[in-house]
């Protein structure tokens, strides 16, 4: 009798999974309150919380340059851009909050996971941004790379994420234009200004390659590419996205009279792909484990502001309790 019941419930779960996969295959959108397999929920939580927290941590390297931007126009531009990034972070954390709610978790847990190192943020935001050229390059190429990876998920099976990405991508296009405008001004400027961008490209090139993630699991040991493809969260592989990036940006970089710090870089006409030197994937693993040059400093900023404003959060929650009471 007991085994019959177990069998029955296994069958019921299998049925649920089958009908769920049928919806995915049919291109239907899954919504926050729909039943979903744990594997799907977990991969979404990991992906979207990492994306959201990366937007927030990503404000920090640019934050450095907001007060220092060299004209009123640039000050206004970079203020608007970083504000958008924080807005994206907020939007994505809201999407994550709905996913973690059934697990009894809240935004506090997301922040705790960030501080403990369980929740990782994008490799590029662990890096140094020591010049104004970096402020331009982040907008131009880091946001350019982000547009490529995010466009790849615009038709993601999870409705709330797909809708958030639609808005995010629209704004990222402006960011890339903002970054490109800074870079163009420098490229048309003095010798020192030109040298400033070349220096930024040299510094950021390897991080930009890493941005798309390893080509396969061999490089770093694990990869979620197969799961995200199975559930139609994304369509292209990491390597395809990296190749798209090269196709779009290598000619633009060269046309500005700049060089790419990889002498092996070229397009192979027969293979129809870009040949390039692989970044150091062991270094990548170290960086995303919060051992990058700026990881600890930026986490410290986030953590300090969290602690420093504890009294504010507690005042707000006591206020809402008073109102509720």
């Amino acid at each position: 009798m007991v085994s019959k019941i177990i069998n029955h419930s296994i069958n019921k779960d299998e049925e649920k999974i089958l009908s769920f996969m049928a919806r995915i295959e049919a291109g239907e959108k899954i919504e926050a309150d729909d039943w979903m397999p744990d594997e799907y929920r977990n991969v979404l939580i990991k992906l979207i919380s990492m994306h959201g927290i990366s937007e927030i941590m990503g404000a920090l390297p640019e934050k450095e340059w907001v007060p220092k931007a060299p004209s009123l126009k640039r000050k206004l531009g970079i203020m608007a851009k970083v504000q958008d990034e924080m807005g994206h972070g907020q939007l994505l954390l809201r999407v994550t909050e709905d996913l973690i709610k059934p697990l009894g978790k809240t935004r506090e847990d997301i922040m705790e996971d960030l501080f403990s190192g369980d929740l990782k943020f994008h490799n590029v935001f662990h890096m140094e941004a020591p010049t104004w050229g970096d402020a331009g390059l982040i907008g131009w190429l880091v946001d350019g790379a982000a547009i490529i990876t995010q466009t790849n998920m615009l038709s993601a099976s999870y409705g709330p994420y797909a809708r958030a990405l639609k808005r995010i991508c629209a704004e990222e296009v402006f960011h890339a234009q903002h970054g490109e405008a800074i870079i163009l001004a420098l490229a048309e400027g003095t010798e020192a200004q030109k040298a400033m961008i070349q220096d930024s490209i040299n510094r950021w090139w390897e991080s930009l390659l890493m941005f798309f993630g390893p080509g396969d699991a061999k490089a770093v040991g694990t990869s979620k590419q197969d799961i995200t493809a199975k559930y139609k969260i994304r369509s292209k592989s990491n390597e395809e996205l990296r190749q798209d990036f090269f196709t779009k940006y290598v000619p633009r970089i060269l046309s500005l009279g700049l060089t790419i710090p990889d002498l092996t870089m070229h397009f192979d006409d027969q293979k129809k792909e870009w040949i390039y030197r692989q970044p150091d994937w062991n270094r990548f693993k170290e960086i995303v484990r919060n051992k990058g040059p700026k990881s600890q400093e930026r986490l410290r900023l986030r953590k300090l502001s969290y602690e420093n404003n504890e009294w504010v959060r507690s005042a707000l929650s006591s206020g809402s309790e008073n109102e509720a009471g």
């Binding site: 404000a59 907001v66 203020m79 970083v82 924080m86 907020q90 900023l301 420093n308 707000l316």
Partner: peptide
């Protein structure tokens, strides 16, 4: 603008930076 990323919560970060931007 110096407060960017340091406000008491993320919603406030967005609102405050919008105000600073208007003011600039």
């Amino acid at each position: 603008s110096e407060w960017l990323g340091l406000a008491p919560h993320i919603e406030e970060d967005v609102a405050f930076s919008s105000i600073s931007q208007d003011t600039m």
